[in-house]
Write a protein that binds this DNA or RNA. Structure first.
Lengths: 162, 162
DNA sequence: GTAAAACCTCAAGTAATATTGAGGTCAATA
DNA sequence: TATTGACCTCAATATTACTTGAGGTTTTAC
């Protein structure tokens, strides 16, 4: 009997506004497979607690975390790095806008670098691809990350092939 | 005795200007592991012929092909797609500048889309990451490829996460 | 002419990012 | 209450892009 066993101050005990979510609900709302949520949890990107029957329950915060994971992934950031970034969020309390902003600031730099690299690549693509320089080490197309390389470890995934 | 067994019109038989290259020479010049060259060959991205002793020999054209492979990979294009693009190059003769330009034109569009996507992502990152919309399907940060989606199959690797 | 360096094949291993399946439990509903 | 759907764990499989290693051959260099 949903709603009866709940003791919240609000009159609300149904799915729509209940605080905790099942894995299936999170999967549907975030458009991520249940297996992927299990996987993220095993990698420490999200967390849950268990019911007496050993089923996972998530706080609604997880929706934003999953959204961040997907957005970050679409820029090419590997899960390990996303995990590290998410680990900087406060433990226990729901992150504030400031917390999220701090997290995004680091990624923004990498994004800038990646955009710069791709832009240079694009601009040189037509010029270099047909000329003789491409097969040489000195070709600018082959060294698009000259400046980015100086940024150190943070930019490592920007150099996909080398 | 290098140079003696060669019958070229030119006086050149040494490594520097010999037409054919061993796998080790290609590896060194292109900064790619021998094992990777074998792998590319097994996947049909490059080709070679064999000596009487069953060793691979490459035409110098392979250097440019390998360079293209690395450049394309750095933009996120998977090997299967690179293979398809390289397959459009003329069979038998050395590709001309025009051949290469045609090949790069297709990639340029994808690159443009990818740059656009990342740019939008960057510009929306700070705005959306702290606000409530991120966990909703309608968040612009979660749908950066609205226009790109219309481009069809060619843009498929641009959507890394969805 | 012999020893080292380079090459060969084929199978297995690695890493990231998941999905699929088997075998079994829990919970909501007719 | 019985059944069905949702959930559980753990192992295996899939894909991409290679690398590593074993066991053997060829080429090059002294």
């Amino acid at each position: 009997m949903p709603g009866t066993s709940e003791k919240k101050a609000s009159s609300c005990g149904d799915k729509k506004c209940r605080r905790e979510m099942t894995v299936g609900e999170v999967a549907e709302r975030s458009d991520v497979a249940v297996s992927a949520l299990h996987f993220y949890e095993s990698k420490g990107l999200i967390s849950s607690w268990r019911t007496s029957g050993n089923q996972r329950r998530y706080s609604r915060d997880v929706l934003r975390r999953v959204a961040i994971i997907k957005v970050a992934q679409s820029t090419g950031i590997p899960l390990a790095e996303i995990r590290e970034a998410l680990a900087t969020l406060p433990d226990g309390r729901t992150p504030t806008a400031k917390d999220w902003a701090k997290l995004s600031a680091g990624w923004r730099e990498e994004l800038d670098q990646r955009i710069l690299q791709l832009t240079q690549l694009r601009d040189r693509l037509e010029g270099c691809i047909g000329c003789g320089c491409l097969s040489m080490q000195s070709c600018p197309l082959r060294n698009p990350g000259d400046q980015a390389a100086e940024l150190g470890a943070g930019a490592r995934y920007l150099d996909v092939g080398s």
